[in-house]
Design a protein around this nucleic acid. Sequence first.
DNA 1: TGCTGTCAATACGCTTGCGTATGGAGTGCG
DNA 2: CGCACTCCATACGCAAGCGTATTGACAGCA
Lengths: 201, 201
Amino acid sequence: MTNTELAEVESVADKPERQRLSAQDWEIAALELMAEEGVAAVAVESLARRLGVTKGSFYWHFSTRDALIEAALKRWEDTDNHNTIARAEQIENPTRRLRELFRQTSREMRSHKIYAALLKAADHPVVAPVMERVSNERIAYLARVFVQAGMQPVDADHRARLTYSTYVGFLQLALQFRASRLSSDAFDDYVGHVIDTLVPN
Amino acid sequence: MTNTELAEVESVADKPERQRLSAQDWEIAALELMAEEGVAAVAVESLARRLGVTKGSFYWHFSTRDALIEAALKRWEDTDNHNTIARAEQIENPTRRLRELFRQTSREMRSHKIYAALLKAADHPVVAPVMERVSNERIAYLARVFVQAGMQPVDADHRARLTYSTYVGFLQLALQFRASRLSSDAFDDYVGHVIDTLVPN
DNA sequence: TGCTGTCAATACGCTTGCGTATGGAGTGCG
DNA sequence: CGCACTCCATACGCAAGCGTATTGACAGCA
């Protein structure tokens, strides 16, 4: 672990073309590809080409393709993911926290693209448990905040589910149908409407 | 067309095992498989096995796999699909119509399963245009009803998008994560909450 | 009966993608 | 120097899936 960290630091210098890869490099590249072209596109040979090596390298780091997927998802869950909620937690007022959560969420694309890709691969045995865990955590978090914002527990559960469904649905509609994409202003208007409709008070 | 319709009528009789297949049979079987296991599972040989024949048969009816997908989706769009809106249209009061639309939609599973499968394959060149057409039609319809229910056009557009996102998101969350499925009663409660939140008045 | 059109079986070639086996190149270190 | 460890290339086997080519079975009809 200390070894890899040192390697990481050094790698910042000779970034452009470096010869020897670590498992991390494969995981990161896998997430990148996943965000762009979906889980199915994460193929060993394809990834290897991207990294300028061959599969001979891959199978030294990972025993199987699924092992890579699993490691990559773990990385995603640990980093991209926990940050989202942690950042929102800093705002005291729950109503304002929800507003900010929505606005923040409506910006940074990368993690969302990955989540969208995972949604489309929810039948994959490695992906399914991750998705279930992440989604349920988020819904539960939303429910807690709705309670803090003054809703009854039952209503808060429903509203959390409704809210999260809205998020998931939006990902599908927006990220897939690239044609009917909203302009930046129109999108802000839409988010405003969503907030007014779903956030109490 | 009259020929095929007659054939359809006759086929009801000798359903269990019939020797010679039509293009229709393949399309219907494809939709069935799609609903159960997704677009990717619609493979020529797999389908053939299901129908008790081999691919030799398939390639007589269709020139390619994509041709089958396309024909099957056309069938889905023409039948399963247009009925949904048509049925709702019979209710005068727009608010009640929305309520009923939600309730109806929350029942019949088959067409939803297909739509969910298509969502996960929205990058497929044959699937994409169908999805875009269907989704936009439905959103536009919702927007019209919201206007009839008294909303301002801009708000109605937003609310329609929000509502449809909720639907799409629900499909993902409910149909995929089979574990955390709601009981029938809890589901009715949830639909009630959704209606109260999204339908004006 | 024989012809023709319709549907189907079989065999083949091709591509993609996974996983294995094996040998080789570079580096650190004793 | 030479050994060992790490990372990588190459070559191979194998399965799934698409599409083609060819032949066969059966029905209707002249």
